[in-house]
Nucleic acid binder design. Structure first.
Lengths: 197, 197
DNA sequence: TTTGTAAGTAAGTATTACTCACCAATTAGA
DNA sequence: TCTAATTGGTGAGTAATACTTACTTACAAA
């Protein structure tokens, strides 16, 4: 029988932790269900009691990690009144979080987007909420006169998200250090003040 | 015996075309070697005569597509003397190319980066050359006084590449239309003139 | 006590990426 | 010209892997 999903039994949690642990050194495709089970100290069958597929398990891991991420972000922007300041906090917090939580970053930026199922997952819902939040702040900034009224909010969001991701993705792939405040400073200067002399 | 790689026999080319064709509708992981062979009209064994692995095949496909892409770009920027103009041409050409060649875009942006082997591939070398070219143009722009001298060239490149990618990735995943000139215009305005009012 | 369900096991199975021994035709060398 | 090697291609394997299914045990409530 399948699990109803109301509770979070120890076995289930151990499986989630095992995959997270294994992905510290391996990419998702090269981690096997047998390894996950062994590392969790349970049998392979149990994985399929709690998760529909190996990918479903991955999306749950991402979902858990993204939940924490979203909390951190929301916590940090409350109190800031300027829209640009809020956006800078989001940029910096995102980079910091990716730098500190490489498995999270790898899953989010490199492992899930290749398959359609992801876009029906709960994890993706959270990503949308995060992106929506940025859009709200941009519109707020346009409303208050902080941001140019003719800047396309959707494009500005794409640039911000793209800059965050691209600023991290290389360092995540090659396990290089990331100086979040300094990178944020550079990004923010270019995006808000422009690169043209 | 393994193939030496000097020639490009019909079977080899048919395999490349088959994967490209199959990836028009399916993501890489859900395409099987059996399907590739059948669609190419050859046997499964032949795939491994010409390619070391299924992934190696993917990287070769990307390599071929990226070669064309690089040619297109280089062709278009010759003649332009302003650095910013060159960068705008690169942004617009990239978006146009991704829009017109969705399989190429999906492979490059969504399918290869999750595995380390990719970063040793010939395809990745081409990506580096493309990125290097952008950096050269940025430095040229700083030298000529078009671009702010205190803008970090590496970060500016990340923002440009990030903006291009993020401007396309959603539309590629969800098969939406992409208006390259208009998106380029918006991106360029924000990056070069700044978003701040 | 009984009944139902949740937690977990163990032994499968089908599929899939990949291998290997072989064939036929062309080319090169002696 | 005979032969030896190389190239293009086949087809029947194999090991591994994601997933299934029938089963056991623990336990909570009625």
């Amino acid at each position: 029988m399948k699990h109803k999903g109301k509770t979070n039994p120890p076995g289930r949690q151990k499986i989630i932790e095992a995959l997270t642990r294994l992905m510290w050194t391996n990419d998702f495709n090269s981690v096997t269900t047998a390894e996950i089970a062994e590392s969790a100290g349970v049998t392979e069958g149990l994985i399929y009691k709690y998760f529909n597929s190996k990918k479903d398990l991955l999306y749950r891991v991402l979902n858990d990690l993204f939940a924490q991420f979203n909390e951190t972000i929301l916590e940090r922007i409350t109190g800031k009144s300027s829209a640009i300041e809020k956006l800078e906090v989001i940029i910096c917090s995102s980079i910091e979080y990716y730098a500190a939580n490489r498995v999270f970053a790898r899953i989010l930026l490199l492992e899930v987007r290749n398959s359609q199922e992801y876009f029906n997952s709960e994890a993706y819902e959270r990503v949308r909420a995060y992106a929506h939040n940025i859009l709200v702040i941009i519109n707020e900034g346009i409303g208050s006169g902080e941001i140019k009224p003719d800047a396309d909010p959707l494009i500005l969001r794409k640039i911000i998200l793209g800059a965050i991701e691209h600023a991290c993705v290389g360092e995540i792939i090659f396990s290089r250090d990331l100086d979040a405040p300094s990178v944020t400073q550079s990004i923010s200067t270019i995006i808000f003040n422009g690169a043209k002399a």
